[in-house]
Amino acid sequence: MLENPKVSVIVPVYKAEAYLYRCVDSLLVQTFTNFEILLIDDGSPDRSGEICDEYARKDTRVRVFHKENGGVSSARQCGLDNAVGEYTIHADPDDWVEPDMLEELYIKAIESDADMLICDFFINAGNKQIYCNQEPTILNHERVMCELFQHLHGSCGNKLIKRACYNMYDVRFPEKISFCEDLYTNVSLLKNDIKIAYLSKAFYHYVQNINSNSIVKTYNIQDFEYCEMLLNKFSKLTCETSSFGLCVSKMSFLIVYRAFRANIFTSVEFKNKCGKYRKQMSEYKYQNRVIKCALDLSCLGYYKVVYLFFTIIQKMYGVFKAVNNMK
Rank of each mutant, 00 (worst) to 15 (best):
T31R: 08
T31A: 00
F32G: 02
N34K: 11
F35D: 03
I37H: 03
I37N: 07
I37C: 09
L38H: 04
L38G: 02
L39Y: 05
I40N: 06
I40T: 14
D41T: 12
D41F: 12
D42Y: 11
G43L: 11
G43K: 12
S44Y: 05
P45K: 10
S48Y: 05
G49T: 04
E50A: 14
C52M: 13
C52Q: 07
D53H: 13
E54W: 09
Y55S: 09
Y55A: 09
Y55H: 11
A56V: 02
A56Q: 15
K58W: 01
T60Q: 14
T60D: 15
R61E: 06
R63L: 09
F65P: 01
F65A: 09
H66K: 15
K67T: 04
E68W: 02
E68R: 10
G70K: 02
V72M: 04
V72G: 00
V72F: 00
S73C: 01
S74D: 06
S74A: 07
S74L: 08
A75R: 01
A75D: 01
C78R: 04
L80N: 02
L80C: 03
D81H: 03
D81Q: 05
D81E: 13
A83H: 01
V84E: 12
I89F: 07
H90T: 14
A91M: 15
